[in-house]
Amino acid sequence: MPQQQSPAGRPGGPEQVVPWRPPVDDPFLRAAQRQARPAGLGRRLGARAVDGVLTAAVAAAVAFPFAGPSADHFREQVEAAEQAGETRQIWLVDGTTGVYLAIVLGALLVFGLLYEVLPTARWGRTLGKKLFGVRVLDIEEQDTPSFGAALRRWLVYGLLAPLGVGVVNVLWCLFDRPWRQCWHDKAARTFVARGTEESGPLG
């Protein structure tokens, strides 16, 4: 009588079970590996310090030619009041110095658009963020933010920075979860990530 074989092909042997192995190309695994992680406070402060120094340098360079004329104008106002023997209120910002201030603010606005907004919308980073290996990403798309989001992010930061709450805004990412957002990130629905893929001149 012929000997009965098991389905595995071995006579009388137990049926072998092939262990499950994950597919070589797992899309869910690749998506998890690409998931961006929020950057730490040290990297973010370092990047912001570089950007802040560059912005301050541009502001100083633009304002320097107006420093002397502004001082002379203020001195003339004081001397005119003394000669007239009047007690009058002299404003630091008037029709003359206001023009100088408007020129400086306009230059900073143009610089911010060229240095902060456009590179953030195009590559997700400025020079400071490039040096410290961080990148601004949209929360939902996990990609560079739109121009409108980048503009909104920069404007909110710029408005809060001169105020006392600007410090709270920067430190807010220490307590925020899970994306460690500052207030300007929440306004733009972005977060600052580390270890992301690089592309472009600032990538």
Rank of each mutant, 00 (worst) to 15 (best):
Q83A: 15
A188W: 05
V104A: 12
P162M: 07
Q181V: 05
L174T: 11
A84E: 12
Y100P: 00
W172N: 04
A107E: 03
I90F: 09
L171E: 04
I103A: 15
Q181S: 06
R177D: 11
D94H: 06
V99A: 14
A187H: 02
V104E: 09
E86L: 14
L155E: 02
R122Q: 11
R180W: 02
T190H: 09
I90E: 05
T126L: 11
N169A: 15
F111D: 04
R194M: 10
R125D: 00
A187L: 05
F147Y: 12
T87V: 14
W172F: 13
T96Q: 06
L118Q: 04
G158M: 06
T120D: 05
K130H: 08
A150E: 03
G128A: 07
D176E: 14
A188F: 09
F147P: 00
R189Q: 14
L118Y: 12
A80L: 12
I139M: 08
V117L: 13
L171Q: 05
T144I: 09
G106R: 06
Y157T: 01
G164C: 10
E116W: 11
L160P: 00
G128L: 01
W172C: 06
W154Y: 13
P145R: 04
V136H: 03
R125F: 03
F132A: 03
R177W: 09
L127R: 01
W154C: 09
L92T: 11
A107V: 03
F147Q: 00
V168C: 07
A161S: 15
E140S: 12
H184E: 07
D138R: 11
R194C: 08
A150I: 03
Y157F: 13
V167W: 11
L163E: 02
Y100R: 04
L127H: 04
L127D: 00
K129R: 14
D138P: 03
G95W: 01
R194H: 10
V165C: 10
V136C: 14
K129F: 07
V165H: 04
K186W: 05
E140D: 14
A193H: 05
G124S: 09
R194S: 10
T97V: 08
Q89S: 13
Q142Y: 01
G95H: 07
Q83W: 04
T126H: 10
T190W: 10
S146R: 06
A161C: 12
E198M: 13
I139A: 13
L163P: 00
K186H: 10
E82D: 11
